[in-house]
Structures are given as C-alpha cells and as structure tokens.
Amino acid sequence: MSPSQPVGSNALAAAVRDELTAAGLPVLPWEPGDARGTGVSILAGPDEPEVWIGWVKGEALSNAAIAALQAGAYRPDGSEVHPALRHSSIVQETMLAAIAKILEAAGFRVETDADDMRPNELLVLERQPGPSWRDPVVAPLAGTSGYMPGVRVRLIEGDYAGAITTVISAHWHNWRAVGPPDLYRVEHPHGTGELDVPRTAVTLAQEESRPDVSPRS
C-alpha cells in the first residue's frame, strides 16, 4: 500500500505523525494524558476518519499568557494587550500555519477554520495520492544535472556495458560547468583503476550487485 493512501483505523493519524516527524517537528504522545512538553498534538479516535492537530507551547510562555488573561491584561476591543498574550497568539498562529503548509505540500487536505469551537486546531481530512519525497530517484530525472562522486551507476555502452560501478568525478568541456557533464570518470568495473566514459554511457544503478562483466572482444 502506498504511503500516500492511508487505510484502516487511525491510518491517517499515523501518516500525519510520520510526515511531521520527518519534517523534524516534536510530536507528542498519542494519549492526551501523556501530552507533556512542547510540540504537535494529534487527536483522532479509533473510528474517526479525520484528524485534529494542535500546537502545545512551552510551559513558560503558556503560564505567562494564562496569568495575563486571568488578570484581564487586555482591552476588550483588542487595541492593547499584554505582550505575553500577543506573543502566545503569534506563536500559535505561526506554528499551525507552518504545519498546514508542510502537510499540504505532502498531499494532505487541511482545513484551518473547520470548527469555531476549536479555533486553535487544524483539521486533516485525507491524504490525496500524488508524488512524494519518499519516491525513489529514478530515470529520466536522475542524472539530468549530473551524478555526484560516490553515486552508483550502470554502464550502458562500450566494452563494459551492463557493469555497475561508482562515479569518481565529472568533467565538462565548458569551463563554466553548466548542465550535465560531458564525461564521467568511474571506477574500473574490474577494480583495476579508472575509466573515462561519456555521459550517455551511464545511467543510475538500481541494484547494488556488481556483475562480473568481461570486456567485449
């Protein structure tokens, strides 16, 4: 099953968690009672098709904002508020906007104002199929800007066609090195030095095995 198409109980929540974790965001434990600390809170029932997301601010900022709110340190018309309330609101809005942008870029359908009773939460409805950063790197895009040293390639032309080797360096006839290189220097398929091959003679290798290919007579 493709990761872009979650299925089953809480599968959407698991996909959201994986995506935000991959982005480097701290994600709090599943159970609300365990949600101590700062980070993304993900709430979804076992039989609910959608997912609610919130941002839990740090304790110091949260406590300062609560204290200002309890003390009524703001004008009802919004013309003046204590800095703790303003900063708390900015942090909340900024983090939720960033989370929404990350998820939307990954193919999730997100609503930012889904429920007036939950103004500080995002609603994730589904993940639509489409290209993913998890997709393998394959031709024809692979190599369009040139392979870097260390990349495994397959020779597709010449005496050693079919052999898998490693790029040592790339070379351009144009000193500006714009676009794909004209020539690659690769490890010799038999491990006996180096071999210069034209750009058209290599493609990205999809397997790690190195077959014993003898030069053609």
Results as ranks from 00 to 15, higher is better:
Met148Asp: 15
Arg127Ala: 02
His171Asn: 11
Val137Thr: 13
Glu121Ala: 14
Asp77Ala: 06
Trp172Tyr: 04
Tyr160Cys: 03
Val124Ile: 15
Thr94Ser: 15
Glu31Trp: 06
Ala68Ser: 10
Thr200Asp: 04
Leu183Glu: 02
Ala15Pro: 00
Ile53Gln: 03
His173Leu: 14
Leu141Phe: 08
Asn10Pro: 00
Pro189Asp: 06
Ala11Thr: 01
Leu85Ala: 05
Asp115Leu: 07
Gly193Cys: 07
Thr112Leu: 04
Ser89Trp: 03
Leu43Pro: 00
Leu20Asp: 01
Pro215Gln: 07
Ala65Cys: 08
Val40His: 05
Asn10Asp: 09
Gly54Trp: 00
Gln206Asn: 15
Leu20Ala: 10
Arg216Asp: 02
Ser214Arg: 13
Arg152Glu: 03
Ala71Asn: 09
His87Glu: 12
Arg75Gly: 01
Val110Thr: 05
Asp34Gln: 14
Asp212Arg: 15
Gln70Ser: 15
Gly191Trp: 01
His188Gly: 05
Asp77Asn: 10
Leu20Lys: 12
Pro215Met: 07
Leu141Ala: 14
Ser41Lys: 08
Val16Thr: 05
Ser2Ile: 12
Ser145Thr: 14
Val7Gln: 12
Ile102His: 04
Leu85Met: 12
Val40Asn: 08
Arg216Thr: 09
Val81Ser: 12
Thr94Arg: 15
Leu125Glu: 02
Ala71Ser: 11
Pro46Arg: 15
Ser9Ile: 07
Ala44Cys: 14
Glu207Gln: 13
Ser145Asp: 12
Pro180Ala: 15
Ala163Arg: 06
Gly8Glu: 01
Met1Pro: 03
Glu208Ile: 08
Trp133Phe: 06
Val81Glu: 10
Lys101Glu: 11
Glu157Leu: 14
Gly158Cys: 05
Ser41Leu: 11
Arg127Ser: 03
Gly45Pro: 00
Asp115Thr: 05
Tyr147Phe: 10
Leu125Gln: 08
His173Trp: 10
Asp113Leu: 07
Arg210Cys: 06
Gly58Met: 05
His190Lys: 13
Gly45Ile: 03
Ala170Glu: 01
Tyr147Gly: 02
Pro26Val: 07
Gln128Trp: 02
Ala177Pro: 02
Ser217Gln: 10
Tyr74Pro: 00
Glu111Ser: 15
Trp55Pro: 00
